[in-house]
């Protein structure tokens, strides 16, 4: 396969630390192979920056195969770039044209403060999970795996929700910076499975409360999160969360 080379102008958000103002910097990057992944393109940029004595652009990344949820980036105004069901690390430069200007920004949300450049702090998601996103079963307490049958179709629906990679694209893409898709994915998974039934009410109440405390916005049902989600989590999970919350509030104990 012949390698096509393109030239790009990158507008990258640079911000030294959480408290500083931050601004866009423009970089010209020539001879970018279209076979590169987007992050490899940033690697090349960073090599060039370091060689010219400038500090590299900080960005989060790890597995580079779309499962760890570490990479982020708003690329030309879209979370994880233009492709559906794709993380930034899976996005390839063949998606861009010679001469393009590419604007790269960090996730922007009060709940995700910028750490440096394109890196944000997503600790809020961990705190939401620790508020109730689990089944309280100590190691060693488990009955046999087949003790409770779960219909294959039920398991599939739970798995659809469980596939969330926790990247935060839903928050980033939502005009309200709402975290409902993330929270609802975990609430749904555990509400669907029999193992999650015991703590069903407490779970949804605590997780929503933590979500609000973290400063995320409210859901206005625009479904932009679903479109941006690389794991294709459905907004039907948000409806389920609402149902669960109503149920907990109407029927739950004080």
């Amino acid at each position: 396969m012949s390698s096509d080379l393109i030239n790009l102008t990158l507008r990258v958000w640079r911000q030294n630390d959480p408290d500083s103002q931050g601004q866009f910097e423009s970089y010209q990057l020539n001879g970018v192979s279209t076979h590169m992944s987007f992050l490899e393109m940033l690697d090349v940029l960073n090599e060039q920056l370091i060689e010219s004595g400038q500090e590299s652009v900080a960005f989060d990344h790890d597995c580079r195969e779309g499962i760890c949820g570490t990479c982020s980036l708003m690329i030309n105004g879209q979370a994880h770039g233009p492709d559906k069901a794709t993380t930034t690390c899976q996005l390839h430069m063949r998606r861009f044209n010679d001469g393009d200007t590419v604007t790269i920004e960090p996730w922007r949300a009060t709940g995700f403060p910028v750490v440096k450049d394109l890196v944000v702090d997503r600790g809020a998601f961990d705190r939401i999970i620790s508020a109730g996103g689990y089944v309280s079963v100590n190691t060693g307490n488990a009955p046999d795996g087949n003790a409770i049958p779960i219909a294959g179709t039920t398991q599939e629906v739970a798995m659809d929700a469980a596939a969330c990679i926790g990247c935060g694209a839903c928050v980033a893409a939502c005009k309200n910076a709402s975290a409902m898709l993330f929270v609802s994915a975990k609430v749904s998974q555990l509400a669907i499975l029999p193992q999650g039934q015991q703590e069903r009410s407490e779970r949804v109440v605590s997780m929503v409360s933590q979500m609000d405390d973290e400063g995320f916005g409210s859901c206005t049902n625009t479904s932009e999160c679903e479109a941006a989600c690389p794991a294709e989590i459905s907004v039907s999970n948000i409806a389920r969360l609402n149902r669960e919350y109503l149920r907990a509030s109407l029927c739950g104990r004080d």
């Binding site: 708003m74 879209q78 922007r108 009060t110 206005t220």
Partner: peptide, 16 residues
């Protein structure tokens, strides 16, 4: 609440 949730806006934002 939603305004507070994003104090800094994106320079560019496109729907997906």
């Amino acid at each position: 609440m939603s305004r507070r949730a994003r104090s800094k806006q994106y320079a560019q934002k496109e729907s997906k």
